[in-house]
Design a binder for these strands. Sequence first.
DNA 1: ACGTGCGGGACATCCCGTTATT
DNA 2: AATAACGGGATGTCCCGCACGT
Lengths: 185, 185, 185, 185
Amino acid sequence: MPNDSTARERLLEGAEALFRKQGYAASGLTAILEISAGPKGSFYFYFPGGKRQLAGEVLDRYGRRGESAIRALAQKHSGEPAKFVRALFRAAAKMEATQCTKSCLAQNFANELAPADMEMADQLAAIFARWRAAIAAGLASEKVSRKAAEQKAMAILAALEGARTLARAMRSSAPFEAIVEAEWL
Amino acid sequence: MPNDSTARERLLEGAEALFRKQGYAASGLTAILEISAGPKGSFYFYFPGGKRQLAGEVLDRYGRRGESAIRALAQKHSGEPAKFVRALFRAAAKMEATQCTKSCLAQNFANELAPADMEMADQLAAIFARWRAAIAAGLASEKVSRKAAEQKAMAILAALEGARTLARAMRSSAPFEAIVEAEWL
Amino acid sequence: MPNDSTARERLLEGAEALFRKQGYAASGLTAILEISAGPKGSFYFYFPGGKRQLAGEVLDRYGRRGESAIRALAQKHSGEPAKFVRALFRAAAKMEATQCTKSCLAQNFANELAPADMEMADQLAAIFARWRAAIAAGLASEKVSRKAAEQKAMAILAALEGARTLARAMRSSAPFEAIVEAEWL
Amino acid sequence: MPNDSTARERLLEGAEALFRKQGYAASGLTAILEISAGPKGSFYFYFPGGKRQLAGEVLDRYGRRGESAIRALAQKHSGEPAKFVRALFRAAAKMEATQCTKSCLAQNFANELAPADMEMADQLAAIFARWRAAIAAGLASEKVSRKAAEQKAMAILAALEGARTLARAMRSSAPFEAIVEAEWL
DNA sequence: ACGTGCGGGACATCCCGTTATT
DNA sequence: AATAACGGGATGTCCCGCACGT
């Protein structure tokens, strides 16, 4: 089970790339295997649950990666919430959105699968909750109550996700610049 | 006359419902025809461009409907930007996000089609630009410059779109409540 | 019944062009209507028997046109069989084969429809018989018996049809030049 | 090993039978799979290029088979061109044309696909060239120059192809008998 | 004679998941 | 752990034929 064989790894990476570019339904298994140079025959050895399981694991990694990235930023700008928020938005802007091949995986899955696939919905809710908590941690100070921080974190997360969508559609980083300028604290 | 035929209309409505529930790729043409009670044989009479054209027209209607809804709210709360913004968020919360069968069509298409389909990307950019402009119009007053209003409008739009995603994933209207409380002006 | 309305005429011409370019099955009714600028609604007024009837009438015209072309050549070179044969081949070479959009309609139909569609097979047999007779008429002289002329005519017709196929595949008029040089009499 | 699998072989044979009976466009993939008892799911495993690739391979085999058949006849009647030509025509008459389910595959493809599909046209041209060369080889002797042999070979090939068409339409072997009697040397 | 619209089936393609074999 | 092969269903597209109304 702690199987980190390269093939499996490549599959996860290839799948993430495709899911973020075109969504879940449009990313055929064959295409995933192809761009991963994945061993076709043993796909169901690694992922007996098929495409759906693969998606779940990809999302899990994605969620964790996101959370730790946020926490790293929070630590770096500890005690300076304003700087932290700016850094957060800038990071998102730089990383992904403008180059339109990468959208937010969680957003894609929320739109495509959430209502029909309860398990997926739960997983997504958990991920967003963790992200929000991580952001709230970066916002903490004596001035704001915990509850207020959580609420602000939620708003910030919403703005971030929305900016990603807008940036992808407009092929511009203007949305990120706009939310950087807003007053969040 | 040809464009107002009931069958065509039903097709557009059924397609919108499905696209918003499951996205573009996962919504098969057969399913669309079924829920629309659409005449199968004449689908390509109404939409010679196939599914892609259908999506384009659905999006067009959706974009226009959204814009006029925003403008209506702006007019109703003319001169009271704060109230306008609150009304905007409340409307979005009530309308769509919580009942998880409806996500934002523009968001779906941005994630699924934008990078591969330039024309779609342009259409989406235009729609988001119009929405932003409509919001900016509701924000206008002597106190804020036009440019500032446009930037704020972009941030508000981003928060709104993001809140929709979060609400869908979390099956809760908490995201909307969070952005209502944020300071936007 | 003596309906020579332009629309009907255009339909026949457009259908012939398409049938000769791509064959029967590959030429959709929609395509035929399009290139004929044909009135879509009244197609089944002109041709109640549908595509199959259209094909029959197109073939009929084609057969008659071919026969009279042969007879005209025979008359022009009356008493000079060798010249007649050469003229026959040259005419075929010039008319159709090299420009690869036109193959012999009778050949197409023979290959696509003949065994399955008895009526079509009969029609084709009749046309080829008339062509052969027309060629035989051009070959007639005191030197050759009627029977011998008919046999030679058949061979000439075969060579002509075959040369058309070869010319189309090779995109060259070499096949016609080859049969011109052969000794036919 | 993969290319000799029985299923693949059966597919090729079934496809040839149908293509020769009804042509390319009229032969649906489902029909091909059915008469081949072909494994439906793995069709695109064997032929990733789809129906078009299948047609290409069928034609390739057909072309090669024809060539070696001609060469065998040439060898058998070596030094006796007249006998060779007669044998050639008799073989064609016996083999295929009369039983109207089989027309010449190359002819079918030349008529249906050649103008739209350049690659196919090239393949067809190559096959006819090889057949002509094989016939020319059977015609070789001290009496005729190489060039003359090639030209005669082309005329013979044309006659042969044409006779096939006529025989199919007339449901008779008369066309073959006619070209046997003609003077070819 | 003609435009518009419908009915339902067939098309080639490609899908995801499972075998048996190694 | 991977290959080759299979099963059968779903995809979007387009087909031909036939209604209506004018």
